[in-house]
Design a protein around this nucleic acid. Sequence first.
RNA 1: GGUCCUGUGGCCGAGUGGCUAGGCAGAGCUCUGCAAAAGCUUCUACAGCGGUUCGAAUCCGCUCGGGACCUCCA
Length: 509
Amino acid sequence: MSAASLQVYNSLTRKKEVFEPYKYPYVGMYVCGPTVSGESHLGHARPFITFDIVYRYLMHLGYKVRYVRNITDAGHFEEEGRAAEDKISSKAVLEKLEPMELVQKYTNMYHWAMQQFNNLPPSIEPTATGHIVEQIEMIKKIIADGFAYEVNGSVYFDVAKYHEVFAAQGLPYGMLSGRNLDELLETTRELDGQEEKRNKADFALWKKAPPEHIMRWASPWGEGFPGWHIECSAMSKKYLGEQFDIHGGGMDLQFPHHECEIAQSAVCNHGKLNARFWLHNNMITINGRKMGKSYNNVIKLSELFSGSHHLLTQAYHPMTVRFFILQTHYRSTLDFSNEALQAAEKGMKRLLEAYQYLKNMSLTANANAAADNALDSKVQQLVQGFAESMNDDLNTAKVLANMFELVPIINGIKDGHIAMNALASNTLQQLQQQMHLFVETIFGLQPISAAGNNDGKLDGVLDILIDLRKQAKANKDYATSDTIRKSLEAVGIQLKDAKDGTTSYTILN
RNA sequence: GGUCCUGUGGCCGAGUGGCUAGGCAGAGCUCUGCAAAAGCUUCUACAGCGGUUCGAAUCCGCUCGGGACCUCCA
């Protein structure tokens, strides 16, 4: 498998391109992180799981990846121009908490959720409040170059001026989101309090803080706080340089957030495009509508994991959610429903059980040829398909489909109706190795039971019960054996008798 | 209104111009003391109407439906 064969869809060019980093083997990847003014919801899970897969896959391909994912802990506006209210500080007042206390609380919850999902931590997780100085420096530079202006203690980016100069350098405003600046300037939408801006398309780099605003910092323009987009430009530049390889985030950030980042960074970085590959994940929808605060249809992650939400018929394990997300291509919308999640849960369990068996299978060292050539080549093709599908714009759904085609074969070997030597020992070895690689290392899937918190004691207890039941069955004391089975099922533990006489168990929800 | 995406079998979802994706559910069967699990088989779609083509779910046009962005948003 060669690294050069990875292709990803670049939002910037609107087509799939072969991924090549600026400076092999190093890859810089920046992903927009959460705003920690509230609890993360299911929608937030998608980019973080998606880009965790990207991160893992790039590392698997041999790249040395620096993955930067920010935490936005400085307040942003509810609505541009209108009675500017810092989300974080206004909520802090309601809850009688310090702003930073609130930020800490939600940051902790976010980290907890990321761990539940088995997402690897990023290499650097910078905070907006920790980079006020860098942001101010950038803003100063933008003003000095004439692409921003100050009005009453606020600073705005002059989009028209920028476009005039940078369009000629191949960096027109709107290049990422496919927007036409003239049309943006003509937007008939009327917003209050826009009088400070020269043009409607202009955006704030620094905002003067009203007296009630708790989060505030000193700046050359008075006390205030940074604008909506500058933090990502500042932090990506600091940790990844003026030009880096991948910038990721949700599709809803494409405009204006990422568009503005490109413009700000271009001014500060001598007319260079900040990121070469722009990857955007699609939205999670619920009843066909995007999950989002403004739609009032969010399911928080803690609710999802505990089942405590009126739309949920049961709790869903974080691994189920991860699997659910992986079953759809990242650029398609993914519609939430209990049925879909339950289907994912069942499918994942079946897959992981077959995988567990495969993993524990001891292979013979001698290199025998395949007794069943057709089956052998089928398996080989399916296994090769893993990498091929991933290289085709990270088609995790296709990889899982291939895995599911392998499940009956693995179980067939387990049940004994497919002979071990049907497959060449080489093929079997490849199967074992590649399944391990993709299931655990790249997809980050963990068996649900292992993700629990029993340290082997439960196994011990169950072994005793399973043994007792076995003895009862041997004595044809089916009343006892069925009581053990049914009682365990009643507390959520399902026994499974295998063909070879052994019994395993699954913990149900 | 502008820009863009999308419409696949009961549900969820992948998809290359020709070669049945896959998952879940349903049905039948095998195995099993019974059951579960597992396996086998089965149900087989591409919004509608035109067009291009030897051939289209896949390309083009129109119609209808859904959605995203244009405002904080993963």
